[in-house]
Amino acid sequence: MRIGEGTITEILDGGLAKVRVNRDHLYVACSACFGAEHVYVTARNSLGAQEGQDVRYEVQDEHLIMGAFICFIVPLFLVILGGIGGYSFGATVLSALIGAAAGLIVSAVLVKLYDSSLGKKIDTKATITEIIETEDDES
């Protein structure tokens, strides 16, 4: 289980909240945060935290290894395989680049399909576990 901290930026319907997570407490899906300064996580808000409050949340990481494999290893493998296949088909550098690009496109589609199917099978949302009291809240 991973624990992170963030600030609630929006209260959503269905007992959910949108939490802004900075780089120090970053734990989100592999492709959602690359290069971003702030990332938003949708979390179950069973504590009734309000907009602007700092919160601590937990994310179950049961599927972390499989997700990392799908997000990083499979695309790398498909780009290499596409490059080799393209080169063996056309025997030029251009055909190898076209094959690698095709492998990259196929891997992007596979990652997107995996992400959407995982979201339907299990609840991957974070859960707010604590409202962090700051000095501004106490006064």
Rank of each mutant, 00 (worst) to 15 (best):
C71Q: 09
I98T: 03
L64V: 01
V21M: 14
P75G: 01
V93F: 15
L16P: 02
L12A: 09
Y57C: 02
S95P: 06
A96F: 12
V59Y: 07
G6Y: 09
E138G: 00
R23M: 12
V106P: 02
E10N: 06
A32P: 00
G82A: 01
L78M: 14
S46D: 14
I131A: 05
N45C: 08
G4N: 06
R23S: 14
S95I: 04
D61I: 01
H38M: 06
N45R: 04
K112L: 12
G103T: 01
I70H: 05
G67T: 13
A36R: 09
I8S: 05
L47W: 04
V28Y: 08
K120N: 10
P75E: 05
R2P: 00
G15L: 10
D24G: 14
I132N: 11
V59P: 03
Y114C: 03
V59L: 13
G82C: 01
V79E: 07
Y57L: 10
C71S: 15
G48M: 03
K121R: 10
V59H: 05
L16W: 10
E135A: 02
S88L: 13
A100R: 00
A49H: 01
L78C: 05
I105M: 14
C71E: 03
I122A: 07
T127W: 07
S46A: 11
S117Q: 11
L26W: 11
A68W: 05
L64N: 01
D61L: 04
V106M: 06
S116E: 13
T134W: 13
F77L: 14
K121D: 03
Y87N: 07
C30S: 15
E62Q: 08
V79Y: 08
A100K: 00
F89Y: 12
S88I: 05
L81W: 15
K125T: 04
F69E: 08
A126V: 00
A91I: 02
I11N: 07
D137Q: 10
G6S: 02
V19C: 05
A102L: 06
G86H: 10
G99T: 05
F72R: 00
S117A: 14
G86L: 09
Y57P: 02
A29E: 14
C71R: 08
G14V: 06
L94V: 13
S116F: 12
E133K: 14
E135Q: 05
I122Q: 07
E62K: 09
I128M: 08
G67W: 10
G85F: 02
V74T: 06
I105S: 13
H63Y: 09
E10P: 02
G4S: 03
E10S: 07
G4I: 01
D24A: 15
F77M: 13
A126L: 03
V28L: 08
L12F: 09
F69N: 09
G82W: 04
S107I: 01
A36P: 00
D13F: 07
V93M: 11
